[in-house]
Nucleic acid binder design. Structure first.
Lengths: 208, 208
DNA sequence: GTCTATAGGCGGATAGAC
DNA sequence: GTCTATCCGCCTATAGAC
């Protein structure tokens, strides 16, 4: 009756519970925010007792920061996969459009991504270290990847690749924020492709 | 001993209390967020009793939405004053740089503006109507003003003024979010003028 | 390690005096 | 209209059995 891998009924292991608590905490914190989430509901969502939660994490703040840090460093780290070598021989319009679409798909298809961003932004005043971890892992990674492409692509000779990369990412992320996060699609409508085309044209037409 | 204008000691007026409650609520909600703010502390900050708060506002949610709506519609509505006629005869580089600097100054000099943005973004899932009010009053206003300038300026002939306006605002706002709101200045340093120059050059060099 | 049960406090909201 | 005093539920965190 022993099931060494999983599905076991005895309660002797702790790593499984830790995962369950993190999963339950993720569900609750992403849905309700930090202050409005209760440890009772985290325990229920994790299917453990509240005392078990407190035996794995010192307090509510520790659970929250451990959880968000994990999301930043693992789950939402790679907005973009590493570019393959062949992209350097692909027209920049194609590469940049794919880059933009990948980022926007994250916001529209990954169901928890918008709530994750809401937490990072909304709690950036009370949890500045989490915000910095986000900048290091997500924003900086995007800037570097795009900037490296700008520098290496033989078809592009930009005056300031670093600043251009930030403009590109900024235009895309702000579009995502206004249209999806702030529910602005019906108030300031704009086709995604129209923004991307204009953005790509600005950059491709402007290499020296 | 009557002071008809202000400073009166009797408690017969209500509009003054309403203002005091809104001011106290603004202080508390902007500092701690919606869920972490208690009506006790709002009452203390407003220097009235908690019962008085509840005689002016039905519940916590009503006070919060009334307060944020007022901030959106009055205090932070005009990121930019209406353009004067002479700007059309000023070089676009100057006008666009001034526009960008005005927006970034709001984030760095108006002390409560970042907390205001944190609330709008962080609560946009639970208070979607507040987010839409923000889009209508702040984002849409910026887009329209910049777009109108793009269309009227005799030195600029842009292929898609609407999309270009959104790229411009997006690059600026995202810069503000990463550097100031998310405390990214030391992680991904970038001079403000460097971003603005690159952005302005992209647009000015690209009119058809 | 995990549970049930509970401590102790603070939350939103209201009753009733003046 | 405004106050003081209070209700009662839920909150974080822990004690103690197993």
């Amino acid at each position: 009756m022993e099931l060494p891998i999983s599905g076991r009924k005895d309660k002797s292991l702790s790593a499984e519970k830790t995962e369950a608590i993190l999963a339950g905490g993720m569900q609750e914190f992403l849905a309700h925010g930090y202050a409005a989430t209760s440890m009772d509901r985290v325990a229920i969502a994790a299917r453990v007792s509240k005392a078990t939660v407190y035996s794995h994490f010192q307090d509510k703040e520790s659970l929250f920061t451990a959880l968000i840090r994990r999301l930043v460093e693992q789950r939402f780290r790679s907005l973009f996969n590493d570019a393959e070598a062949e992209v350097l021989h692909t027209p920049p319009e194609i590469v940049l459009r794919a880059f933009a679409n990948r980022a926007l798909d994250m916001g529209t298809q990954e169901p928890q991504f918008l709530n994750f961003m809401r937490i990072i932004l909304g709690e950036s005043g009370r949890f500045p270290q989490l915000a910095r971890t986000f900048v290091s892992n997500v924003e900086q990674t995007s800037f570097k990847m795009l900037c490296q492409y700008f520098k290496e692509c033989p078809y592009l000779k930009l005056a300031d690749p670093e600043a251009t990369a930030r403009i590109f990412v900024g235009a895309i992320v702000h579009f995502l924020i206004v249209q999806e996060m702030l529910h602005g699609k019906d108030i300031v409508p704009m086709e995604r492709d129209r923004l991307i085309d204009t953005l790509v044209n600005l950059i491709v037409a402007n290499h020296q």
